[in-house]
């Protein structure tokens, strides 16, 4: 079956736009307006100034049994870590040592990070199952085990972000552009002293085998 001459003409007239008449459209009508309840369902992040902390409360005493039940299998009863799983407590004063122990207490700059992370990602493999009260209690337990709060101290949406973390002042913004501005491209006679091998990977023998 063929399209008649009249049909062709009509189709052509209906769809043709001369280049001189073409107007590039702006983007419109794509995407839906996010509804308040949709935003509320996903907006769980917490900032150091406390913005985003949900209403709730908990103490280390409340958190102790919960920690034993839901966290200790990886982090140990007191946050000391099991196997290679993260150590949450201790390590204070170790950051300048040969083997630093970077824990919540010795390293983390803000308490808000603790709430934000537990609420979104813990327990590992069963994320987003803890209530705000449970996250306040678990955070309180970890902070108490680091001697940052008292065991009976209630943490809540009003005081949680006020807690000062001991290592906070030791963080600073990337300065590599200034402190590591390497620009010398030596081409010959670059090493004044003898060149010696000081370590070779096969000696350690930790490369995975086929």
């Amino acid at each position: 079956m063929t399209l008649g001459l009249t049909g062709l003409l009509a189709l052509g007239l209906a769809t043709s736009v001369l280049a001189q008449d073409y107007q590039r459209p702006s983007i419109s009508g794509i995407g839906a307006v996010a509804q308040p309840e949709q935003i509320a369902a996903w907006d769980i992040d917490v900032r150091p100034d406390g913005l985003g902390l949900p209403v709730g409360k908990g103490t280390a005493e409340d958190g102790e049994a919960l920690f034993a039940d839901r966290c200790a299998m990886c982090h140990g009863d007191f946050g000391e870590g099991v196997g290679r799983w993260p150590v949450l407590t201790g390590g204070h004063g170790s950051l300048t040592e040969e083997r630093p122990e970077k824990t919540v207490g010795s390293y983390w700059p803000y308490t808000s990070t603790l709430f934000d992370y537990i609420y979104r990602a813990m327990p590992y493999g069963d994320a987003k199952t803890l209530s705000p009260d449970e996250v306040y209690a678990l955070s309180a337990y970890i902070l108490a085990e680091n001697q940052i709060v008292e065991y009976d101290q209630e943490l809540n949406q009003d005081n949680f972000a006020q807690i000062e973390m001991p290592n906070r002042a030791n963080f600073f913004a990337d300065d590599r552009a200034v402190s590591e501005a390497y620009s010398e491209r030596c081409m010959s006679g670059c090493k004044a002293e003898d060149i010696n091998i000081v370590s070779a990977a096969p000696e350690l023998d930790v490369t995975p085998e086929e």
Binding site: D45, V46, R47, P48, D49, L95, T96, P100, K102, V104, Y107, W108, P109, Y110, S112, T113, D116, Y117, A121, N170, F171, F172, A173, D174, D175, R176
Partner: peptide, 27 residues
Amino acid sequence: MPWFAREETSKYTDLLEDGRARMFTWV
């Protein structure tokens, strides 16, 4: 302001010998 999430404080910060740590080392 930034959120200072776990992956930009506890991790992905660069501890120096003097105990200070660089953060926001993106490049």
